[in-house]
Amino acid sequence: MPDRTIVCRCEDLTLEEIRDLIKKGYQSIEEIKRVSRCGMGPCQGRGCRQIVAQEIAGATGKNMEEIKMPKFRPPVKPIKLSILLGGEDKNA
């Protein structure tokens, strides 16, 4: 039975979809992210990257420490453009 457990809530990806991608040969978080958008939503992977890492480790027989984590890039949590305008725009 397909596993409909949601792994990436932002992009609506299931455990089954992640496992299929790993089977197809995408065996790093970076690659899975690029083909599926996993971890590219508003939470930037805070929910899913550990789960994906565990799945990759399980499927490839590696330790969790060997699974490379993607970089957190600014601004880390979504912020409005107006916040960056600082004091320049009183109407922001």
Binding site: P42, Q44, P78, K80, L81, S82, L84, G86, E88, A92
Partner: peptide, 29 residues
């Protein structure tokens, strides 16, 4: 990535399209 870039984008792009002020940035690279 640099913080300077975020400020630069915010200033220049909201000049072109002021309505984007309320849009949230998710990630820079």
């Amino acid at each position: 990535s640099t913080w300077q870039f975020l400020e630069d984008v915010a200033r220049k792009i909201t000049y072109h399209m002021p309505a984007l002020k309320n849009v949230r940035i998710v990630r820079q690279w």
